[in-house]
């Protein structure tokens, strides 16, 4: 087996600030992962349909608009509905500390805040994806 880790980096919501998502994509690429980047303003439905077709191991969600409490859990729920609940979902962006427990309870595996080293994100993905 020569399995590469496949990650979908997606931006749900209406903000257009994609610098963070692009930096993370680039870092994951440099860590040897195959990254699918789908651009800004994606609906949770689009993100999940893409994740299923691409059969990714993980989804990284970036949101800076403040709508993370609605959009991130929606992605997790839609994945489960598709029978793809094993996909590791993590998020990043401008997310208040007090929102993090709720997001984790909703099934988001980890939240990376501004200032996180890309090394931490890479290590987290490598440790937690199930490449069965």
């Amino acid at each position: 087996m020569d399995k590469k880790i496949k990650v979908l980096v997606a931006k749900p919501g209406l903000d257009g600030h994609d610098r963070g998502a692009k930096v993370v994509s680039r870092a994951l690429r440099d860590a040897g992962m195959e990254v699918i980047y789908t651009g800004i303003r994606q609906t949770p439905e689009q993100i999940v349909a893409t994740a299923v077709q691409e059969d990714v191991d993980s989804i990284g969600l970036s949101c800076l608009s403040g709508a993370h409490n609605k959009l991130f859990p929606k992605v997790v729920d839609l994945l489960k509905a598709q029978g793809a609940g094993d996909v590791l979902v993590f998020g990043g962006g401008i997310i208040p500390d007090e929102d993090i427990p709720g997001l984790k309870a909703a099934g988001v595996a980890e939240i990376f805040l501004p200032g996180t080293s890309t090394e931490d994100t890479i290590a987290f993905i490598k440790e937690n994806v199930t490449t069965a």
Partner: peptide, 19 residues
């Protein structure tokens, strides 16, 4: 050629067909 990783971005242009 160095890391073996990739950024696959063709799909950005085709997301209107995602659903």
């Amino acid at each position: 050629p160095f890391s073996g990783g990739a950024i696959l971005g063709d799909r950005i242009r085709m997301q209107q067909h995602a659903l």
